[in-house]
Design a protein around this nucleic acid. Structure first.
Length: 588
RNA sequence: GGGGGUGUAGCUCAAUUGGCUAGAGCGCCAGCUUGUCACGCUGGAGGUUGCGGGUUCGAACCCCGUCACCCUCGCCA
């Protein structure tokens, strides 16, 4: 039990509080010992306050303070005192005052921490995750957590004000095929049967619409047993939304409002509305991806038509075989060394390219580089005109089948963004990507849903659904920010017959579809309204607002890339007894 | 499962072509210090160079294997 309970925090006191007797609680951030005078910076979530321990005031208190170590939890009672003009610390909010200590209580001593608690030292992430409770004591991490709180708070206020209601859905659900792998939970009551952790609240929120609850939202945790990335954790948080009697513009408008409210509150920025819109085809063609980074140019150009009869066989043969030749311009890339250009080609090969052709633009429509001799002046002139290249630039071309050329150039475009430092901080370019294909073909040739199987096809494609499924476009939309997919959604199917047609196209037998989704199909027969929604990644949103490149810094206890919690050691084994009770056995 | 990067003191890093007792800053310990605020000064302790094996007169450095962390492809409807 400790005696001195705080009357204020370490971030509150100002010159106007001079003369007050206060009690502060907190952690020793630093101690500066002058033999006689001892200064202690006391820290809590709200800030830092300097405490002065003078031997003239109380010898015993001073001597105790001289022995304080970093991170010890203490309580100090003292008088707020104005600092002399030349000893004011402009770097901290409480820098005009200090506490003249009368009493000191050591509440809990601390061992020397494995790393310094502060923002100025770079500590390896491994070390931080192992001692996350100390890492979270650092001001930078506290700022991330508070920002995340403010984002969620702003969203909740906005959603409530817009008539949305926060409704919870189960996390323990029935396994659903397709999509992300589920985590599975055995139950002692059902041998051989398993719950699954929800990969998303998708079906439940659709059923809310059937129930007439309309305008649903939830800040929901989702669980997916897939490999991790810088922007992916096995459990993550979504802003999940579903609305009835809407078309896609209605959903997009609602999301834009919520996002704009967040940007206004957190960054003071008025986002231009509505956000940019782009079709999936346009995005793939111009940016080589379905999540374009619009903060810089470097659009991809198709030059197939210009080179189809060229002497340069790599180009002409590719076009004759039905492929394409596309390229982009690296501004000022004429100065790249041969090694740098080779580096770019290696990068392209790493993401699936057969090769990369580069042409420097030299004075007088001349081309430079190893392949230059194959490019007569007229062709160079045409290429330059088509791509908009200028003297001193470097044109980079990929010849391949269309999809491959697009994706390689999409990657190359981002590599050039980083290499040439083409984007500034604090620029936010939102974009909706629309008109996604309904289906995609996996490597094994299986037809799968591009978004998910509940997405509605666009009306004009209903007739060719079975005949030419790959031509069908969906009423789906993705929200993209600076090349990061923030979220996606769609107008859903609300008729049993259409839903069954889609299941069938995806290769689900009627029996299987009924077993897994029977309740949904049934629901559609009891008066299902047209509805649609979206889900946005809250972790990614927080990451982008904070200018971070890693989702783990906005999650309190994240897993490593190998899905391990370095602090708790999870996952761990369970006892034989538990396994028996759960009717499960480990098989090698 | 594939590709790439990293691993040296408590922490962050250095160590020339394979060659001196493996160093520095911070932190830690002791002492000095009445206006510091990343205090300063003096001294000190601290190393299985991730782990295992190999090559060599000699390995932090080269080779093989392995582990951990990071980035990435596949995967993430």
């Amino acid at each position: 039990m400790w005696k001195l309970k705080r009357t204020t925090t370490c971030g509150d006191l100002r010159a106007s509080d001079v003369g007050k007797t206060v009690v502060l609680n907190g952690w020793v951030d630093a101690r500066r010992d002058f033999g006689s005078l001892v200064f202690v910076d006391l820290r809590d979530r709200y800030g830092k306050t300097q405490i002065l321990f003078s031997p003239d005031r109380d010898r015993a208190v001073h001597d105790l303070a001289a022995k304080l170590r970093g991170e010890t939890v203490i309580a100090v009672k003292g008088v707020v005192r104005k600092r002399d003009a030349d000893t004011i610390n402009r770097k901290i909010a409480t820098g005009e005052i200090e506490i003249d200590a009368l009493e000191l209580e050591v509440i809990n001593e601390a061992k020397t921490p494995p790393f310094e608690i502060g923002d100025r030292v770079n500590v390896s992430e491994e070390m931080r995750l192992q001692h996350r409770f100390l890492d979270l004591r650092r001001p930078a991490m506290q700022r991330n957590i508070v920002t995340r709180h403010k984002i969620v708070q702003t969203i909740r206020e906005y959603m409530d004000a817009s008539g949305f209601i926060d409704i919870e859905t189960p996390y323990m659900v029935k396994f659903t095929p397709g999509g992300a792998r589920n985590f599975v939970c055995p139950s002692r009551l059902y041998p051989g049967k398993f719950f699954a952790l929800a990969e998303s609240p998708q079906i439940f929120k659709q059923l809310f619409m059937v129930s007439g609850l309309d305008k649903y939202y939830q800040i929901a945790r989702c669980f997916r047993d897939e490999d991790l990335r810088a922007d992916r954790q096995m459990e993550f948080t979504q802003l999940d939304i579903e609305m009835s009697f809407v078309q896609r513009e209605d959903v997009m408008e609602a999301v834009e409002g919520a996002v704009a409210a967040v940007w206004k509150r957190l960054l003071g920025i008025d986002l231009p509305m509505p956000f940019a819109r782009m079709s999936y085809d346009e995005s793939e063609r111009d940016y080589g991806t379905d999540k374009p980074d619009l903060r810089f140019g470097l659009k991809i150009c198709d030059v197939s038509e210009l080179v189809k009869d060229a002497e340069f066989k790599v180009f002409s043969e590719t076009v004759k075989k039905g492929g394409v030749v596309r390229g982009l311009v690296a501004p000022g890339g004429g100065v790249f060394s041969r090694k740098e250009i080779e580096g770019l080609e290696t990068y392209c090969k790493g993401i699936g390219a057969k090769g990369m052709v580069s042409l420097k633009i030299e004075p007088g429509w001349k081309a430079g580089g190893p392949s230059a001799k194959f490019f007569p002046e007229a062709l160079v002139r045409a290429l330059v005109e088509r791509t908009g290249a200028k003297e001193g630039d470097l044109m980079l071309f990929i010849a391949d089948e269309e999809e491959k050329a697009a994706s390689v150039l999409g990657g190359l475009r981002l590599a050039l963004r980083d290499k040439l430092k083409l984007v500034k901080d604090d620029v936010y370019r939102f974009c909706w990507v629309l008109d996604f294909p309904m289906f995609e073909v996996s490597e094994e040739g299986k037809v799968g849903a591009k978004h998910h199987p509940f997405t509605s096809p666009m009306d004009e494609y209903l007739d060719i659904l079975e005949k030419e499924p790959m031509k069908v476009r969906a009423k789906a939309y993705d929200l993209v920010l600076n090349g990061v997919e923030l979220g996606g959604g769609s107008i859903r199917i609300h008729q049993r017959e259409l839903q069954q047609r889609i299941f069938k196209l995806l290769g689900l037998t009627e029996d299987y579809a009924r077993d897994r989704f029977g309740f949904l199909l049934d629901a559609f027969e009891f008066g299902a309204p047209p509805h649609g929604g979206i889900a946005l990644g809250i972790d990614r949103l927080a990451m982008l607002i904070l200018g971070l490149d890693n989702i783990r810094d906005v999650i309190t206890f994240p897993k490593t890339q190998s899905t391990v919690d370095l602090m708790t050691g999870a996952p761990g084994t369970i006892t034989e007894k538990m396994m028996k009770e759960l009717h499960i056995r480990v098989v090698e």
